[in-house]
């Protein structure tokens, strides 16, 4: 599939819909109607399977500790209360992690976007000598990576261990995002604009800054979201590069609170109340840490769709 088909596809569906609808009304046979019932049932099943666990978590987070620990919550809060949230929001480690994650996400996204544009724009220009070699160099990193230990050795040699930069610099450039940006620049910036700028004696940097970037806002939004969400959700680099708990991103704090402390249900702690509270806090914690993403979700979903289309172009 090419970018062109992906772009053309949308208006065409719109145009097709009315005619198909009329046709269906006339022609749906009995077999077709049975088939459609099956389709709706299938999709309803999909919907419920995804939704029910999410609703259960949400309902539990608003329930009383005793109800949660007794396993009495299904899809509606039992003995509604907010104490789970009060406990989570007064937990110091959670707040520190939240702040750290915000920092890593904002700074990491900015660094990533700058570097991605700086490499993708020159590579989108046919005049660049050695262009194929550079593009090959980027693509190869998608096929083959140095691996955990060899990368760790580089980070250690640079003295980045246990610093905030260890979470930002090693993963700053994503090959996929470079590919998307390159394709976008190549296919959406008209060459006439560039020729006109050439005649005016505009330099390449100036052209990038005042013509290309203002025309590339949708692209910048897509890759910013990709980098931002990746950074917000990741814990692996923090796990291997950080020792100092003050620097932990939220995901690593969550791992310690939600997973490591969990003994698989064979908990013999005698302080019943504390244990019940710990159960409840887990649910509230999940909701609190997922809410930022779900707030931007409708916006994100729209842009991610575009990203998938842009990415489906062969390099």
């Amino acid at each position: 599939m090419t970018l062109q088909t992906a772009n053309r596809a949308e208006p065409r569906t719109e145009r097709r819909r009315p005619s198909r609808r009329r046709a269906a009304r006339v022609q749906d046979t009995r077999g077709d109607r049975v088939f459609m019932v099956a389709v709706y049932l299938l999709l309803a099943t999909f919907l419920l399977v995804v939704l029910i666990p999410l609703i259960n978590i949400l309902a539990s987070s608003f329930s009383s500790p005793a109800a949660v620990s007794g396993g009495r919550v299904l899809l509606w809060p039992v003995d509604f209360t907010l104490i789970g949230y009060e406990a989570v929001l007064s937990n110091e480690a959670v707040l520190t992690g939240f702040g750290n994650s915000l920092f890593y996400t904002v700074v990491g996204t900015i660094v990533s976007i700058v570097l991605t544009v700086l490499i993708a724009y020159p590579l989108s220009r046919p005049e660049l000598m050695g262009r194929k070699v550079f593009i090959g160099g980027v693509l190869f990193t998608m096929l083959f990576s140095g691996g955990l230990i060899p990368t760790y050795m580089v980070v250690r040699a640079l003295g980045l261990l246990d610093t905030r930069w260890a979470l930002i610099l090693p993963t700053a450039i994503g090959a996929w995002q470079v590919l998307i940006a390159m394709t976008f620049f190549r296919s959406t910036i008209p060459s006439e604009l560039y020729e006109a700028a050439q005649l005016d004696g505009t330099s390449d940097a100036r052209f990038l800054w005042s013509v290309v970037l203002p025309l590339s806002k949708p692209l910048l939004a897509v890759i910013a979201l990709m980098y931002g969400i990746g950074q917000w959700n990741s814990y692996f680099n923090a796990l291997i590069y950080l020792r100092n708990e003050e620097l932990y991103p939220l995901q690593l704090v969550l791992r310690d609170l939600l997973i490591v402390n969990n003994s698989g249900g064979t908990n013999l702690a005698d302080q019943l109340a504390a244990e019940q509270m710990a159960d409840l806090m887990k649910f509230s914690l999940i909701v609190v840490s997922t809410v930022p993403l779900m707030l931007v979700y409708p916006f994100v979903a729209r842009h991610f769709n575009k990203g998938v289309m842009l990415g489906s172009v062969k390099g």
Binding site: N56, I57, S60, N233, Y235, L252, L254, I259, M294
Partner: peptide, 14 residues
């Protein structure tokens, strides 16, 4: 868009 840590936590809870 839910992080791996959260998905695994949800699994452990449900």
């Amino acid at each position: 868009f839910i992080s791996t840590v959260i998905v695994v936590s949800m699994l452990i809870l449900v």
